[in-house]
Amino acid sequence: MTETLPVPALVPSLQVRVELADLEDHGRTAAGHRRVVPIVGGTVTGDFTGAILPGGADWQLVRDDGTIEIDSRYSARSDDGAFLYIRAIGLRTGPGDVLAALGRGEEVDPRSYYFRTTVWLESSAHPELANQLFVAACARHRNEVVYTAYRVS
């Protein structure tokens, strides 16, 4: 018996702009080259609309080849007071010269490097968000990260 399985599609769900403070370079730790980038604000629009709250961060581990393992955790609050917890886990990698330019804060075409995350959402006001999978294509700018999170249907 052959089953016909559904083919997942990507449905745009959230547009996110995360404002960043200066990078904190922790140097080489037991886990590797550790960096932390504090999150100080931003916006979310789409299936949830609100402001990103200060206090989150992007905990990064830089591999020897320059690839950055991303682990971001932060919160947003909608105009009606509902909270959204966001966790984005992924990778940013590319040619050495492109990664170096990003590290210097230069504007780089996001098509010239790979920056993808899985996005996990939690909200008591929107419990359906925790029961869906999201992936994102991201771009790094001098003081912000922007991305579109796509719901996997």
Rank of each mutant, 00 (worst) to 15 (best):
A125M: 07
Q15P: 00
L133I: 11
T2R: 12
L84C: 11
D79F: 10
D109C: 07
Y74E: 00
Y113S: 01
E128F: 08
R73K: 10
V18P: 03
V11Q: 15
E144T: 06
L61G: 04
V119M: 04
E19N: 14
H126V: 05
N143R: 13
A31S: 12
S153N: 14
F134A: 02
P54Y: 09
D65F: 04
V16Q: 02
E106K: 04
R111D: 15
L14E: 04
D97L: 02
T93D: 09
V98N: 03
V135S: 11
Y85T: 09
Y150Q: 08
R151N: 03
A82R: 13
Y85V: 13
A139Q: 09
R63V: 02
G103I: 09
Y147L: 14
R35D: 05
E107R: 12
V16L: 14
Y150L: 13
A51W: 08
G50F: 10
Y150T: 02
T2P: 08
S123M: 10
I52N: 05
R116P: 01
W120S: 13
D58I: 01
F115M: 15
S13F: 12
S123P: 09
M1A: 14
R35S: 03
E106Y: 03
Q60F: 01
F134T: 02
R111N: 11
G42W: 07
V62C: 01
P127K: 09
V36C: 06
R34E: 14
D47P: 00
V16P: 02
T2F: 07
A125N: 07
R73D: 03
S13Y: 11
C138H: 05
V44E: 09
M1C: 12
Y113C: 03
H126M: 13
A136H: 06
